[in-house]
Write a protein that binds this DNA or RNA. Structure first.
Lengths: 225, 225
DNA sequence: ACCTGAACACCGTTCAAGT
DNA sequence: ACCTGAACACCGTTCAAGT
């Protein structure tokens, strides 16, 4: 309507609008045009604030991680209760991270927009390093362990979002007929996979928080000597 | 040029063309128009073979998993050497899966196009279930463990691809200046993250196969009683 | 059944121009 | 500095029409 350096948007306002769009209409709706439109500016104006769509996405990751609750651990806890308290806190952090990412549809697309090297990502990493070191791990092993825990949390989100994302597609095709690698239609012979068949009911609910917590506990059991 | 039911493409030909495109020009180049163009047909003709781009992507996942080497384990091995042999095979499967996915740029985008429920995905799952059961795990725990292992492998790929994908972006901006959640420019005060600073050299190479194998070993240590 | 060509409603990004 | 409007080179998908 009227050009000129009238009012200035803050980055926080832009990121909030982007998250509103993400939650309301999904990852695909988070376009330069879409975000700009919801802010009442033209797409090109958005390039004043972020040099590319990827930069906007990376800003969203930091905005999200800023809300990550890393919890607390008093000195008394770490001194007295020992590794058990530290381990409990690590589980809490992992659960918070998963909840934060699972709560936003398409958050994985955000994470994959670039390396986790922003201030808030480093704050998370630093906390994990501290906790793993507190269990007696060397700094090197703590670094590997912190990475492994983030790998597990992100992989969990990746697999979960893959299973949710396709409702409409799956509904239109017969679930008993499947197309193999060469394109030939065939019956998915569940008898060929007897164990998978038996665990299918478990599989149906394996993406729950409980399954995630189970995996994190097992991973920590392997990581912490 | 000339319409009509002249020659018929196989699904394998289409998927091969799609993978050529993926390896040559990245995930973004795997478009309906791009794949069709490289096959010498129009975009609409491709919809004869796959009802949507997502279906094409899911076909690519199955095509990829068909090439996954699940290895072998003789009965003598499992009977005599016990869990050690099974565990070694699980590590080999995990490494094969990672290598397969890491070898194709943007493979994670493929995986996230839908649930891993194709025949080859089930073949992988069934093998993992067998192996975990062979270590003495209950069927329920084996199912959770198999899922956890896939979570770890996929998370590893997700984090790796996030760190590679942004070379051009990172090169154009000063790595010492960073934009925080509210958009204010600030120095990334590495002194605020002393442990992360110390482990940065390790971080630089932590995406290697060795780091992945380390994590898988630790995870298995936690999973297998 | 398999294909074409045109069209619809979108993308990210660039550029000259306005205030 | 911040913004607009037009443009470029793309998307996935649908539809009527041809053989």
């Amino acid at each position: 309507m009227r050009p000129g350096p009238r009012r200035s948007l803050t980055h926080a306002e832009i990121l909030d609008a982007a998250f509103d769009l993400l939650e309301a209409k999904g990852f695909a709706a988070v376009s330069v045009r879409g975000v700009a439109g919801s802010l009442g500016i033209t797409p090109t104006a958005l390039y004043t604030y972020y040099p590319s769509k990827n930069a906007l996405l990376r800003g969203m990751v930091e905005h999200l991680l800023a809300r990550l609750d890393l919890g607390t651990l008093t000195e008394a806890d770490s001194a007295e209760v020992g590794v058990a308290a530290v381990r409990a806190r690590l589980v809490r952090i992992a659960l918070s991270l998963r909840e934060l990412l699972a709560g936003h549809a398409g958050a994985l697309g955000l994470i994959m927009s670039g390396p986790l090297d922003g201030p808030n990502a480093m704050r998370l990493n630093e906390t994990l390093l501290e906790q793993f070191c507190a269990t007696g791990l060397s700094l090197d092993d703590a670094a590997r362990a912190a990475y492994a825990l983030q790998v597990y949390a992100l992989g969990s989100i990746a697999l979960e979002s893959a299973e949710v994302d396709v409702e409409s597609d799956a509904a239109t095709s017969d679930p008993l007929i499947v197309t193999d690698a060469s394109g030939a239609a065939l019956w998915t012979d569940l008898a060929r996979f007897p164990m998978s068949e038996q665990t299918m009911t478990l599989v149906a609910e394996r993406n729950s928080t409980a399954q995630f917590a189970w995996g994190v506990e097992r991973l920590l059991a392997g990581l912490i000597g």
